[in-house]
Simulated assay, not measured.
Amino acid sequence: MRAEPPRIAVLAKAPLPGRAKTRLIPALGAAGAATLHARLLRRTLAVARAATAPERLTLWTALDHEHPLFIELAEVHGITLAAQQAGDLGRRMHHALAAEAGPGLVVGSDCPVLTPALLRDCWAALAEAEAVCLPAEDGGYGLIGARESDPALFEGIDWGSASVMAQTRARAAALHWRLACPARVWDLDRPDDLVRFAAREDDGP
């Protein structure tokens, strides 16, 4: 296992009604979906902070870089804020990884099953593999990491589709990279996921 703590980048939108967790708006309303997004982001930052030191954790912001929640989280956890690069999700993740001085992990804020131990397992996997992913049940992934980011890993991906993980495996193979997948996870993206989320003892309604 790597002796140093993980370098983690968290990508998140500001919790603006109508702009965050839009697929949950039919179930929660715009304000409710934004509130849930803020709750998930708080949880993700707490989990990441439990896995690493504050100087190795960056919150990459979108929509409103000066949003009060971002400022609060930076102060509470003693972490760095940075603005996400323009472009699609792949470009933004590559930029966040490339900004790290060495290997790094990138996560979003909508994976309720992410734990400090799982983050540390992914970080340790980079000792043997060039890249690491946590495949998600919907065909995407909840985390990606690499020893050194390469834009080719993120090109030609149908973001938001059920093909994301399969396409990412193909990109890693084309780079001749070993891709470690320590666990399978699920994301909170759709109304059906709310029941599952509420059933978790630590994240009840």
Score class of each variant (00 low, 15 high):
residue 86 A to I: 10
residue 145 G to P: 09
residue 85 Q to P: 06
residue 138 D to K: 06
residue 116 P to Y: 08
residue 12 A to D: 12
residue 124 A to S: 14
residue 179 L to A: 01
residue 61 T to E: 00
residue 190 R to C: 11
residue 175 L to E: 09
residue 67 H to M: 06
residue 185 V to E: 00
residue 155 E to F: 07
residue 92 R to W: 08
residue 117 A to G: 09
residue 93 M to K: 04
residue 27 A to I: 02
residue 70 F to I: 06
residue 97 L to P: 04
residue 68 P to C: 07
residue 107 V to F: 01
residue 81 L to N: 14
residue 68 P to F: 14
residue 86 A to V: 08
residue 115 T to A: 08
residue 139 G to N: 09
residue 172 A to V: 04
residue 197 F to V: 09
residue 181 C to D: 09
residue 26 P to K: 00
residue 205 P to G: 14
residue 66 E to S: 13
residue 137 E to N: 11
residue 158 D to L: 09
residue 51 A to L: 05
residue 60 W to A: 01
residue 125 A to P: 08
residue 190 R to G: 01
residue 20 A to Q: 01
residue 169 R to K: 01
residue 203 D to H: 13
residue 54 P to N: 08
residue 132 V to N: 06
residue 193 D to L: 02
residue 181 C to W: 00
residue 205 P to S: 13
residue 115 T to E: 06
residue 71 I to A: 15
residue 39 R to E: 15
residue 170 A to L: 11
residue 14 A to W: 02
residue 165 M to K: 07
residue 193 D to F: 08
residue 19 R to G: 04
residue 119 L to A: 04
residue 66 E to V: 12
residue 148 E to S: 14
residue 24 L to S: 05
residue 202 D to A: 13
residue 201 E to Q: 10
residue 82 A to W: 11
residue 105 L to H: 00
residue 23 R to I: 10
residue 81 L to E: 09
residue 155 E to L: 12
residue 54 P to C: 05
residue 78 G to K: 03
residue 18 G to Y: 12
residue 141 Y to P: 02
residue 184 R to P: 03
residue 181 C to K: 05
